[in-house]
Simulated scan of single mutants.
Amino acid sequence: MSQAIGAFQEDLKLMGKADIVTGMTFSEFGRRIKSNDSSGTDHGSAAPVLFFGAALNTGRGTVEGTPNPVSGMIGTSANLPQTATVNDQVPMQHDFRQIYATIMQDWLCMTEVQ
């Protein structure tokens, strides 16, 4: 995925569009913490959402002094139990519907429907 995103970003840069495009990856299902009996993991409640692009406000000065001073990271690392079972879930931090609503309102300048 990183190679595909890198190639996409390079193409945007060559076209002079890098500052006006933001990309987002989202999986409609997460994975559970522990493997099941078939050595796989069942669908879970949480999954990472990744945003990428030159226009994102993710510089060092933006994140210094925050709880997670990793450039571009929002949210916290999950606190996983030492004795997780196949039923334990990674806790969801942000509702994907709110993420989509924020992108539509703040990036695409759409208005909220009442």
Rank of each mutant, 00 (worst) to 15 (best):
F8W: 13
D42Q: 07
S77F: 14
E28Q: 11
G16F: 12
G59H: 06
G61V: 01
H43C: 09
A46R: 06
Q93F: 07
A7N: 13
T25R: 02
T76N: 12
S71F: 01
S77V: 11
D37S: 15
A7T: 04
S39Y: 10
D11Q: 12
A7L: 14
G75D: 07
I5S: 01
I20L: 03
T66F: 03
G53V: 07
P48Q: 05
V21A: 02
D95Q: 13
A54F: 02
I74R: 11
R31P: 12
S71M: 13
T85H: 09
A47P: 01
A18C: 01
Q9K: 04
A55W: 02
R32N: 09
M24T: 10
I5N: 04
D95F: 14
G61I: 00
A46L: 10
V21S: 02
A101Q: 15
G44W: 07
A7D: 10
P81T: 02
D37W: 09
F52H: 00
T66H: 02
A101N: 11
E28A: 08
A101I: 04
F29R: 14
S35G: 04
P91T: 11
V49N: 09
G44N: 05
L50P: 01
D37Q: 10
N79V: 15
G65F: 02
D19G: 09
Y100M: 03
G23F: 00
Q89C: 08
G23D: 00
V86F: 05
S27Y: 10
I20D: 08
F8A: 00
A55S: 15
F52P: 00
P67F: 07
H94V: 15
N68D: 06
A7C: 03
V70L: 11
P67Y: 02
L50F: 11
P69W: 02
M24S: 03
G40I: 03
G75C: 09
F26R: 01
K34F: 02
P91E: 15
F51E: 01
V21P: 00
D95S: 09
P69E: 10
M24E: 05
F96E: 02
Q98T: 08
S71E: 13
N57E: 07
F26G: 01
T85S: 15
V63T: 08
L56P: 03
G75W: 13
R97T: 09
G65E: 05
G16Y: 09
E10K: 00
H94E: 14
